[in-house]
Simulated scan of single mutants.
Amino acid sequence: MQRKATLFAALLMLLGLTISPPQACRAADEDPLQDFCVALNANDQQITINGLLCKPAAEVKANDFASQQLRNPGMFSAKLGSAVNLASATTFGALNTQGLSIARIDFKPKGVNPPHVHPRATEVLFLAQGTLVVGFVSTAPENRLFFKTIHAGDLFVFPRGLPHFQFNPSESKPAFAIAALNSQNPGVSQLAVALFASNPPLPEEVLEITLGVGDEELHRLIRSVQEVSM
């Protein structure tokens, strides 16, 4: 009798998993409802929807599925020594509804992609050239740092929504990586910029209490982050 009850409970659990709303277990964008949905004038749309309008299928050409965007680096930050060039649905229309973005990240010697989060995507990074120190921090209460030095040909995963970074430790050699993210619009928030260069600014008293610093030190931090983010 006990064995039958255990089996019945297991069946109920399995049934619950199979009929649970998809949103309860999804961690990426919704599945497309058609073969493709090449974004229509992504930068000129006047209405807001969860995604981008589709180009009429009859007007879609093979060229719509190709892009040269990642042939070259993005714009380097003079202070950080890194450049991110992100191909997402807004810059590469064929990615619309596909739940995918891809980025090229270039690093000068001692260049850093500072701690940041992608609220809507997990990231897997492939290091094509050079060496990087990479890592992420788990959520509270552990706030555990997972970091590792990786080399050309290696992969590293940054879980969705967790603060992470990449740093080129070499003093003479550049590094180059490709990152895939499972959202057509992963979003990005640099932690230092969010704290010290938001618009409008966070209340200074909140920052002083949180960080345990005075006016002078807080203003120095704000100036430093603003200079880096310009």
Rank of each mutant, 00 (worst) to 15 (best):
L125M: 14
P159V: 04
Q69I: 15
A10D: 05
A192K: 01
V60W: 03
S198E: 06
L86A: 08
R26E: 15
A24C: 12
S20Y: 11
T18I: 15
L53S: 08
R26G: 11
L95K: 00
G153D: 03
P114S: 06
P201V: 02
V188Y: 06
L70Y: 02
E216N: 11
A179W: 00
T149R: 13
Q190I: 13
S224A: 15
I49D: 04
A121K: 00
I19R: 10
Q166V: 11
L86S: 04
R144Y: 10
N41V: 11
Q69W: 08
A9Y: 08
D154I: 12
V84S: 07
L52A: 03
G214V: 08
H151S: 14
A78E: 14
N96R: 00
G212Y: 14
V38I: 13
L221P: 04
P114D: 01
R220C: 10
S198G: 05
Q46N: 11
L12D: 02
E30G: 08
S138E: 10
P163E: 06
H116T: 10
G212H: 15
S183P: 06
L191Y: 07
F146S: 03
L125D: 05
L221I: 11
L52P: 00
F136I: 06
G93V: 01
V60Q: 06
L7S: 09
L33R: 06
P73N: 09
T210C: 14
K148M: 12
G111P: 03
C37A: 02
C37D: 00
K108V: 03
N43Q: 14
A140V: 07
P174S: 14
V213G: 04
I150K: 00
F8H: 11
Q226D: 06
V188M: 14
N63V: 09
C54K: 05
L181T: 03
Q226P: 03
P141C: 10
G135V: 04
L15Y: 12
G161F: 01
L181F: 03
L207V: 08
H164R: 05
F158T: 01
H116P: 05
F126Y: 15
L132M: 02
V225T: 04
A62N: 12
D31K: 09
Q166C: 08
G16V: 07
K110D: 03
V60A: 07
F8Q: 08
K4V: 15
L191D: 09
A179K: 01
G99T: 00
A27I: 12
G187L: 04
T90R: 02
S101K: 01
T6L: 12
F176V: 10
A28T: 09
R3K: 13
